[in-house]
Amino acid sequence: MLKVSGLSKHFGDNEVLKQINLEVKRREVVAIIGPSGSGKSTLLRCLNLLETPDAGHIEIDGFEVDARRLKKSDAYALRQKSAMVFQHYNLFKNKTALQNVIEALIVTKKMNKPDAEVLGHKLLDQVGLASKASSYPAMLSGGQQQRVAIARALAVNPAVILLDEPTSALDPELVGEVLQVIRSIVDTDTTMLIVTHEMSFAREIADRVIFMADGSIIEEGDPQSLFGQPQQERTKKFLGTVFSKN
């Protein structure tokens, strides 16, 4: 369903992604873990071309692009296939929660406003924010904003949802409500790629965990084996430091 091959990206002299190959099946939930600067966020941002890869092929839901021959129209077409949840929510600050959710429906899917609003209210209800439809982002807590952002991502009915450290910017007491919402989406069989530092959460929800370091995929596997019996030295070292902190 999602297929990446030979994906490379550098910023200046820094090779952030080195020939990444990755496949995600429909309805699969894949967690990407790894130290800061390992390229996990860049990988996610390359998948919807917020960053332009130097080389490589990306295929989502039957639509393929070649990074070396990227046309503007291809970039827009590929982005239609995914939606992203950002670390810092990035809700449209000039729009209410409801408007945030339905904006893309009206602008890109050309849905009429009443239909979009019905769907918007339903999605806000799904993330537990039915009562906040007319609130602006500035009036919402971080956790609430991130839940609206998740509803906004769901609205476009993407083939895959990309979550880029969705709880990293949250106050600790707000992390739970966002994880709860993500859990509920996992239950709806949505395909998801989630970059996270919440190891226990990754272990709980992911079908597969990928460990990245220094721009490469070091190791991948189901959560039990990757967290239980990591094979690579680099993985062991990383998990060792992470879990000794807790």
Partner: peptide, 8 residues
């Protein structure tokens, strides 16, 4: 980025 990510 948020605009682009939802296909605008």
């Amino acid at each position: 980025e948020a605009c682009l990510s939802v296909g605008m």
